[in-house]
Design a protein around this nucleic acid. Structure first.
Lengths: 343, 343
DNA sequence: CTGAAAGCGCTAACAT
DNA sequence: ATGTTAGCGCTTTCAG
């Protein structure tokens, strides 16, 4: 038995297709109650549900959006995805998830395929971002929201979401200084990444605000992965006067530091204070638990999807570029890994 | 400038829409070379790409599938998603990702919405599975592949993928016995979950095969989360003769055990051998690295999507239920966390 | 208040 | 080898 169509419903209810459509879409024109009843009964009896495909062909709306990310395995994304999905679901949207795997071509392939499917909007959160993707979307008139990417001059229906690392990282620097530390260090991500540089610079600026000579603060480059932390710690402990407080560019490296410290007999937080960034779930679960600069991941997702909905709802005419730029703040979560310096 | 339609291409090339369609779809009927040329030129000049929506309305195919999972944040899924996506992409499919959040109603909402969108197939990997979801899909004639779920009698186009824990868990038991251990313990997941019971029973059976009296092997119930491991370890160490080897129902609890052991001065692997299950990325990165029973996650994803493609390609007539049942094997990955028992 | 008719962009007979 | 015609399932004028 095939899925019933609107014609089946119309016939069974003894009305025209238009009437069925009107009833189902809560059209403004009044409909006699008796008629409405008959239609509803037919709908129920047949288990009728309108085909989104047919509907899309005329309405130009698919109730589908796409979320492009680098890699679901990156612990940053899952919660973001939930944020996106929660508001999408509430507004009757489904979301195509696409992993670019840090590959621009793959991202482009997704974008084209999805443009052909006439998605109503796209969210770009891949670090392999590029203006090209945004351009392709713009060419197809697809509303787009971009995370943490500074757009070139692009004519398109696009909003942006930026992460303000300043608030959280400043708080981290303040916290360490307030505890009485004097010798700091930073373990950074790969410095060819803009985000790694931003984190470093913001931390150093935070220290400088307290009159600390940041030229003397060692920055050792990790690669954002766990073992990077251990290697970095080794380098730092080899110095003449090792730091008593470390800010790590992300939590993974901070965990590496945490574990390496234990193996070398360096106690945390007694001998060494440590703060990470990301506030991954594990940060709260390890022992000692790890202080971290937290990103509002769920909010990033929900905000992004909300902005996208705004864009989609917006009349094609009054669209500028970028339509909106939202900023989300980071904050410091203090846990067991920091303390005043031992003497 | 609106997206061009097939009519625009036809006009520009001076041919009929059918001809354009034929050229683009590699129809079997021959087409004069000159004509094909003109069409191709018009396509290129206009930047024409067919609308999947319009195409779907007639072809009854959307080139979209859905993947229902419990929660992307669960470390089991990311790699599975990659597996799914890789074969989907290769076959020109896009995938809707849906997090049921362990909520059957939410899962049902997704299924209905997606059925309305006429997805070509669905993959169910949510532990909040239920025959209801499969039934709803079947009612809509949507091919479905289910992971690790024993179906009731359901008339539908469905295949299944099962995980064979036996191979890997047996190997774990063998390994521990071979090392010379005599006192074992198991830290299980919540025993109301079938999968937790399977893991326990398989491990005990593995020990029994070596003549060990499994009634004396303590099983303490964790809840599959990190802190469950620490709590379980505490209980086990309180016993008169604590175990020298523990098999944990998953890696997260094993990590909890690893860390709790260190705090209590129990050395791993010298005093205690430990094996987890899942082989999450962290297992290889902690110190000592954690032995684990590995699931072929990527393969689970790619196999599932492949089976789905088979189902989709299958003529509606020769469909039985279930069409195919595939089994993937697990295997033991030995690392630093096991050793012969100290005396 | 409701029906008839046209059309969204495409494919697939059926002609020629 | 290509054009004509008729839908796919729905919404939306336009009549009545």
């Amino acid at each position: 038995m095939e899925r019933p169509t609107i014609a089946d419903v119309a016939q069974r209810a003894g009305v025209s297709k238009s009437t069925v459509s009107r009833v189902l879409n809560g059209s403004t024109t009044y409909i006699r109650d008796a008629t409405r009843q008959r239609v509803m009964e037919a709908v129920k009896a047949l288990g009728y549900r309108p085909s989104t495909v047919a509907r899309s062909l005329v309405s130009k709306r698919t109730q589908s959006v796409a979320l492009l990310i680098s890699d679901v395995a990156n612990p940053f994304y899952p919660e973001v995805i939930h944020g996106v999905e929660d508001v999408a679901l509430a507004h009757d949207y489904d979301v195509f998830l696409c992993n670019t795997s840090y590959d621009l071509d793959r991202g482009m392939a997704f974008v084209r395929s999805l443009a052909d499917k006439r998605i109503d909007g796209a969210m770009l959160m891949s670090s392999s971002m590029s203006d090209e993707l945004v351009l392709e979307l713009a060419r197809n008139q697809i509303p787009t929201v971009v995370l943490d990417w500074h757009l070139g001059k692009i004519e398109g229906i696009v909003s942006t979401v930026a992460v303000d690392f300043e608030t959280g990282i400043r708080a981290a620097a303040d916290h360490l200084v307030d505890l009485g530390h004097q010798r700091f260090a930073h373990v950074s991500g790969p410095l060819h990444l803009r985000t790694a540089r931003v984190r470093r610079d913001t931390f150093l600026a935070g220290l400088a605000a307290h009159g600390i000579h940041t030229e003397t603060v060692p920055v050792v480059e990790g690669h954002f992965r766990i073992d990077g932390g251990g290697l970095a710690l080794a380098k730092l402990l080899d110095r003449a006067s090792p730091p008593t407080a470390i800010f790590s560019g992300n939590d993974l490296m901070a965990l590496g530091i945490l574990w390496a410290a234990r193996e070398r007999g360096v106690r945390i937080p007694e001998d060494l204070s440590l703060i990470g960034l990301d506030d991954i779930q594990l940060a709260a679960e390890v022992s000692p638990s790890l202080a971290s600069v937290a990103l509002p991941r769920h909010q990033i997702g929900s905000l992004t999807m909300s902005l996208l909905l705004d864009l989609i709802a917006m009349p094609q005419t009054m669209q500028q570029s970028p339509v909106r730029e939202e900023i989300v703040e980071t904050r410091l979560v203090v846990r067991q890994s920091t303390a005043p310096p031992g003497r």
